[in-house]
Each structure stands twice: as structure tokens, then as C-alpha cells.
Nucleic acid binder design. Structure first.
Lengths: 352, 352
DNA sequence: ATGGATAATTGGATCGTTCCAATTTTTATC
DNA sequence: GATAAAAATTGGAACGATCCAATTATCCAT
């Protein structure tokens, strides 16, 4: 409301095309929409005229009349995070392939900006909204500004209220990571990093515990180490893994940043990650493939998640009566150098 | 053209608001646009009704009638590159602050997809386009699909034709990097990485040569080493720096990826970057601050560049008669650990 | 009260498209 | 070559806002 606007040049319209090739406006419209009603000879003539005068379709006018929309809003809490940038690229890729356009909004993790951004986007009449909510978002405020008619799909973060939702399968990812370490022969495995109160960390820990339990192994609480999930903090906390004997021989990490920090921390304590201590990360950020050692991790394929989110919102748009879906997206284990077998033989034997 | 569309719900209109509070449609419209013509009592009444029934402004209809636009298209060649993702965030931030919305298009470095994406975006009537062109783009094809009326601003990559353009000041960045190394005492400085034919690499090399020349130092061609600008390739080519004696004591790198690869390559040859060999990068990607050693580099502040691009396209929209501008964006030197003084005393003395 | 300002409000036309019912053209059939 | 059926085309109304000229309300001075 009440903002700057910029005048547009006089544009060519259907009438100009129609006049130029001696048919009616309605016929040109049918040609543009690929209707089978028009004779192919007429079609050719119209298409030639369109090319000739450089006519540009006005989708806004079309959407107004047809009460339709060909855009989807994508609201991202942190575009500078490569995970979300990849996600956005995936969304745009899938939307573009069916002629939809992506209305971008980035919120920089501010719930207030998110409200403003949503309010502005909604006025452009998107057919749906994909929202990766900012921290501290208020579900009620969001449904107030979005209104009851536009379908909204939550990505990655929970929110109170009834929403379609697409999230990583954190539980299964951590389960895969842990099982991988167990199959290499590890028996004393830590869960390193992250904050207990975050939902993703909670879910990942659940998967870790489930794998250990299933294998009949201990998961003592002192091997669950909390850290701020950054590289620096993680490196600093490395020592916490080795305060008791016997120490773990491997760690499942909350995410790749934590895992890379742990590798640094291990090196500075004279240990060699990938040789005498195994590390697994989560996310598969680009750096995981080039660290030393390269990092075994759980790939979430954010670009594929973006495509999936686009498919989901399109499906919901086609059929608003579908039941709410809150499914978890596939994740997969990527084995690299950092996950070695235990070097310490009694690490293997003590529990066997 | 000829794509899927999705029906929208029956929406509330100006007429509903008008009827609800006993004024005319035109008055409600004036209220929405903040006109001073309406009595403040009426304004309050109308605003209350808008809230009450949850009316949502239809900007597409408004833009159609007013022949205006409140969107800008942003076409990015590689969103998964954090540099461009940050840039996009900056563009969106600036546009959102004046109520504009960003139409996103990502091309994945494909010139054909870029044509399709531009064609689709143009139909949505953006007031302007910011384009970071895909490799192998054809300027003529782009101006054909965009038409003569929509202002377009090129970012980062040159293209044949007359365009507004915003690019990094590559020359000055490399000049700053080289001068920094010279002031630390280095006399034998290489330029490492990148491809001669890329315009950004050419410009950076020019800045490097200019700084050396200005200081009266040699810039022998064998110290300009070409690599594919990735970390892996760069690490692999490290040896090329040391085939001749005397070898350089420092390197200005084409970008941060190359610089980080070089650091890896140095380590694996038993040298210690930041202690017995100085490295400077270009871009200041997030990883530069956390590598070992942390990387001295040239910051381009892509987010600020995004804001700048948005300002530029808005200015051009306001006044299409402005002269074309092709200025270079500021860059700055960020000194970290990787740029050490020369350890080898005769590296310092030989040329003094 | 009355007139003349000014302030506030309003209805109808319009933006560029699609929808729809009606009309015209073509084709098939005898 | 007349007729019915099918195919192709068309003009006017409509989508939800803004623009504009015209109308009505309100104010102030006499």
C-alpha cells in the first residue's frame, strides 16, 4: 500500500496484433493460449504478426480476468546460507519449468520483516507461498496476514497451527550416520554439538539413540555434548569428548559446521580425524567435500527439496481439499574419508 | 504463454469495502493510496472496515489500470554461489524497503534457460531487470526478448551492446592486494589461478601488474599461473609456483576458492601458508574467515552491491533519459593471517 | 441566510486480457 | 446444390483497480 510506482511504456496489446493480421482480439487470445479451436493457417498468421511487432503478453491482465495466478511466493529466512540458496534455486527451477514465476522475499531471520514481506507479497496475488519461517515467527500473525485462501507450505521449521510442512528427516539421517559408524566397528559413539532445545537437534539425537539401542549399545548421557552449532565453538569443546575413560572412538555431529570444527579441535589435540577418530556430519555443505579429511555426512540435497516443495505447493493449489501433509524429506549417507574404522582394537573388542 | 494456471478464490474487492462502510469505491481507493483528499474521519472508518473484513489489495489490477509496476526481475546465473545469493538478498532488501517485490529467475549458467526465464519474467511486467548473465549469453538475443522498454542493469559480467552495468572493481582489488604484499616486504609475487580469457581475471591481472610496475618490481610471465578456478585444481597446480629459482614468496590469487586450494597445496608440499608463504584471495567468502590460516582477501560486499544495483535500476526507471552508467563497485582489503612478511630474508634482499 | 470558495466524494470509463453466447464459415451427407 | 452438423471466429461484458470530470458538503465572510 501507498508505495512508489513506476510508469510503464505504452505496450502493444492483443488489439494491435489483431488489427495487424485482420482477425479479432478473441482469436489472438486463443492462439496465445494454444487453443485447438483456431485453424492452423490462422494460427500461423497470428504468430507471425506477434513476432513481427514484438508483442509481449501481459500476464497480469490475463490473470486478473481469469482469476488465476502464475506465481508462487518464496520467503526465506536466510538467503546467504547456501542451504537455503540451493533450496531457492530448486524451487525456482521447478516453478519455471511450468511457466510460473517466483516472487522472492528474504526476511533475514526477523519476524517483523517477515510480516511486512508476506503482506507485500500477498498483494501480488501468488497462487501459493513457500515459507521458511524466521526465528520467533508467530503462526497466528502469519495466518492473519496471509488470509484463508492462499495455500502455504512450511519448510524446515515447525510453527504452531495447521500447515503443510516439508522438513528434513533428521531422525533417519542421524540413524543412518550412527548405523554407518556401528557397521565400521565402532562401539563407543558420541553425539556432538547442537542445542538440546532446537527441534532439529532433538530429532537427530533421537535417531542416534535409536540406532545405538537397536544395536544393543550404550548411549550414556555424558557422550551427548551440547555446543553452539558453529565451527569455532565446536573446536573449543572438543576436549569434552575425552574427559572420561573409555572415551568414544567416533562422533555423530549435529551438522557439518560442528563436524568441521571438531576436526580442527582433534588436530590441535594431536589426533587425526579419519585415522584415529571417526567423524560424521550432517547437511553435506560444499566444504564437506574438500576438508581435510573429506567429511562423511548426511546429504539433504536442498535443491531437490526445493523442487519437492514446489511440487507440493502446486499439488495443493490444484486440490485445496487434500489432507495436510507433514512429511519428512529423504536424506542419504555420503561416505568420505572422515569415517574410519576404530584404530584402537580394544575399542572394538571391549563390547563384543 | 500456454502454461498451467491455478484458479484463485473469490476475493474481496474495493466494492466490498465501500459497501461495508457506506462510501464509494473511489474513496476507498484514495484511502488505500494515502491521499490527503479524504476527510480523516472517513479514512478511519474505511481503514477499520478493511481490517474487519480482511481485504487484500490487488496490486496487479492497480498496476494494470495505472500502467505501473511494482516489481523488479532479478536473474541470477548461479544462486548456489554464496556471492550471488548475498547479492540477491541485498537486491531484495532494497526493493522490499520501498514496497517492490523481487521476481526471481535462476538460470544455472545456461544461456538458453536464460532466454526462457527472461521471456517468462517479462510477461509479468517488471519495472526493470537486474541480470547477472549466464556464460555464453548473447546480448542481441537478450535485447530481443526483453524489448526496448524495460530498463536492464548488467551485474558482474560484460556483454556486447549498450547496457547499464555494475561490476566489481577487479583492477583496484588486485592492486590493493598486491600493494599490501609489497608493503609487507615481498618482492617476488605471483598471480595464481583463473583463466586468461575471463574478463574478471584479465582485470585482476592488470591491477596486479600495475602495482608491481609502480613499485619498480618485476612481473615475469612465468609467475602468472592459469588454473581452472576451483579449489581442487588450484591445489593440484601449486607446484607450478616453485619450478624455477628464485621462487615467489607470495601470491595474489584469482579468488578465494583458488587461494584456499593453494593453501591446501602448500601444506601438502610441507610449506606453511601464512608463515613461509603469503597468500591473498579475492571475494571474502565466509570460509575465508575460518580457514587455517584465515585468509587475507579482497572484500566485495555482495549484499551492499545488491542494494546498489537495486538503487541503480530504480534511478533508471525514474529517469530513462539518464546516460548509461558502467561504474565499478568499491572493494576493500581484509587483512587476516595468510599474508605474512617474507620469511626468507634473501627474498627481501635480493631485489632491494 | 446567502454566495463563493474550498474540501470531500462520486460514477462512469478504462487498463489488457478472458469468457461466453452468438454468429459466420466450412465440411460432410445425401 | 441444399441442408445439417461441426469448426472457426467474434463482439461485448467482466476481472479489480485508477483516473477524471462532475457533483455534493462544508466552511467562512458578509
Amino acid at each position: 500500500m501507498n508505495t512508489t510506482r513506476t510508469p510503464r511504456q505504452q505496450n502493444l496489446t492483443l488489439n494491435d496484433v489483431a488489427r495487424g493480421c485482420g482477425v479479432s482480439r478473441a482469436t489472438v487470445s486463443l492462439v496465445l493460449r494454444g487453443s485447438s479451436l483456431v485453424k492452423s493457417e490462422t494460427r500461423t498468421r497470428v504468430e507471425a504478426e506477434i513476432q513481427r511487432i514484438g508483442y509481449i503478453y501481459n500476464r497480469a491482465a490475463a490473470n486478473l480476468r481469469a482469476r488465476s495466478s502464475s506465481s508462487v511466493a518464496l520467503v526465506i529466512n536466510d538467503l546467504s546460507n547456501p542451504f537455503f540458496a540451493e533450496f531457492a534455486a530448486g524451487v525456482d527451477e521447478a516453478l519455471a519449468s511450468i511457466g510460473f514465476v517466483t516472487l522472492l522475499g528474504s526476511t533475514g531471520e526477523s519476524a517483523e520483516r517477515q510480516q511486512a514481506v508476506l503482506a507485500s507479497l500477498v498483494e501480488h496475488g501468488p497462487a501459493g507461498i513457500i515459507l521458511s519461517a524466521a526465528e520467533g515467527s508467530d503462526g497466528a500473525a502469519i495466518s492473519r496476514v496471509v488470509g484463508p485462501h492462499i495455500p502455504l507450505l512450511l519448510f524446515n521449521r515447525e510453527l504452531e497451527g495447521d500447515w503443510d510442512m516439508l522438513a528434513m528427516d533428521n531422525r533417519r539421517g542421524a540413524y543412518l550416520a550412527t548405523t554407518h559408524l556401528i557397521s565400521l566397528g565402532h562401539r563407543r559413539i558420541a553425539f556432538f554439538g547442537g542445542h538440546r532445545q532446537s527441534s532439529s537437534c532433538r530429532e537427530r539425537r533421537e535417531g542416534y539413540v535409536a540406532a545405538l539401542t537397536e544395536a544393543g549399545l550404550d548411549a550414556p548421557l555424558q557422550w551427548r555434548i551440547e555446543t553452539i552449532p558453529t565451527r569455532v565453538e565446536s573446536a573449543r569443546q572438543t576436549g569434552a569428548l575425552f574427559v572420561r575413560d573409555p572415551a568414544p572412538t567416533a562422533a555423530v555431529c549435529y551438522n557439518d559446521a560442528v563436524a568441521l570444527g571438531l576436526q580442527l579441535g582433534l588436530v590441535s589435540r594431536g589426533r587425526r580425524p579419519g585415522e584415529d577418530f571417526a567423524v560424521v556430519g550432517f547437511d553435506d555443505i560444499p566444504e564437506a567435500a574438500v576438508s581435510m579429511p573429506t567429511l562423511t555426512t548426511i546429504a539433504t540435497d536442498p535443491r531437490a527439496r526445493g523442487r519437492q516443495a514446489a511440487e507440493r505447493i502446486l499439488a495443493r493449489m490444484r486440490d485445496p481439499s487434500l489432507p495436510l501433509e507433514r512429511n519428512a524429506a529423504q536424506v542419504s549417507l555420503v561416505v568420505r574419508e572422515s569415517s574410519c574404522p576404530p584404530s584402537d582394537p580394544d575399542g572394538r573388542l571391549r563390547h563384543d
